[in-house]
Write a protein that binds this DNA or RNA. Structure first.
Lengths: 212, 212
DNA sequence: TAGATTGTTAATCGATTAACAATC
DNA sequence: TAGATTGTTAATCGATTAACAATC
């Protein structure tokens, strides 16, 4: 069997993730088929783009009927998910860390929330939302023992750098940095950064200048 | 006096916001000048891109000395900030809403956190972090009376749609949607959406496939 | 059959980078 | 002066969209 295994464009990967979210909702509502233009409309995209993304992942629909919702969810899973799952940790269990933890619970079975880390004695040494919380000093052992591949950083900005360093030397392979400090990582670690203030400033700018 | 007022590319606007964050830190550390390659390195960009962004906003540096940190912060402010400020509200004061509120406090004087909205009686009718919290039913009056221009939506997904509708009919001009539900807004409302799960799935995918 | 939809290539558009002139 | 940096245009690259063939 031949497996389509080229690297997909980052933008396509993002959109596939978004499509899946929507498809899961469609499935819940009992929808069996979906047209490219329906999916496009739900995501403010064009139908061509949706079809092209689907083509790039090697899936196909049925002429005049659209795409089978259930099968497409599985097809996206084949691309986005690791067969045996990937373990995830959150470092910094403040409001942001907790928000992610809560949202996450039970949603993505292939991304297994495995450990939490904090410095607060009230949080460490117990389970939060059913996930064990350790002191950040335990990052090296726990990340290695539990084979944690992905770290989400939601610590206060002044600790962002050292947190990243700890995760990296513990052998993490991907980081989602939600602090306001841009990080530097070695080449073999994938880094994604997001700052809400930038999003908000973008909204402020365009909502102002676009209204004539 | 001639004002440079063309619309900047969205990507440039994002980067200017990021540069400013970094420049503010540089200023705190007493740095007076910064080279394009220094700023580039801090943001994983190229020096050319930094210089081009700066050029596009109509600012200039000094040959061989770089850019004056203080002046550049002001120049970015002239682009991103509204002279008299813009009022912001958060709808949904759960962990995510609270995280934003806390981070936000005192950071961006031109984005004035003006009102919070929730349904929980323990939160409404009092101040949280110094900002008054109202019941979501009061959105129409408060948004109009307080001239709120930007709404951040951090409600549970099932309420995302109606929250957006309420904000829009109350006359909001920009929305930052942090729920997992894509929204539809009329043409004259600027919408920015962000979903952490997509970011996380992107990290999972690339951290897996990029390691050979 | 006509119409609607998928699948795919080619063209276009926009964003980044290369190249280099200017200048301190 | 030589070297380093800014500023800017032109070339390249990548992402989106247009066009259209295939087919149900």
């Amino acid at each position: 069997m031949f497996m389509k295994m080229e690297l997909l464009p980052a933008k396509t990967v993002e959109r596939l993730s978004e499509y899946r979210r929507t498809l899961i909702n469609c499935l819940k509502e009992g929808k069996e088929f979906i047209y490219s233009h329906e999916l496009a409309r739900l995501h403010h995209k064009t139908a061509v783009q949706v079809r092209r993304d689907i083509m790039l992942m090697g899936f196909s629909g049925i002429q005049r009927k659209g795409y089978r919702v259930k099968e497409m969810i599985d097809a996206i899973g084949k691309i986005l998910d690791c067969k045996n799952g990937q373990n995830v940790a959150i470092v910094g269990i403040g409001h942001l860390g907790t928000a992610i933890l809560q949202y996450f619970t039970g949603k993505r079975p292939k991304l297994k929330m495995t450990a939490l880390f904090d410095v607060d004695k009230n949080k460490t040494g117990r389970e939060i939302n059913g996930i064990p919380c350790y002191h950040v000093d335990e990052i090296p052992e726990i990340v290695e023992d539990k084979n944690i591949e992905i770290g989400i950083i939601t610590v206060p900005p002044e600790y962002a750098k050292e947190t990243a360093e700890r995760l990296i030397s513990a052998g993490i392979s991907g980081i989602l940095n939600l602090t306001t400090i841009p990080l530097n990582v070695p080449e073999d670690v994938y880094l994604e950064e997001y700052d809400m203030i930038t999003s908000l400033e973008k909204v402020a700018y365009f909502s102002r200048v676009l209204k004539k």
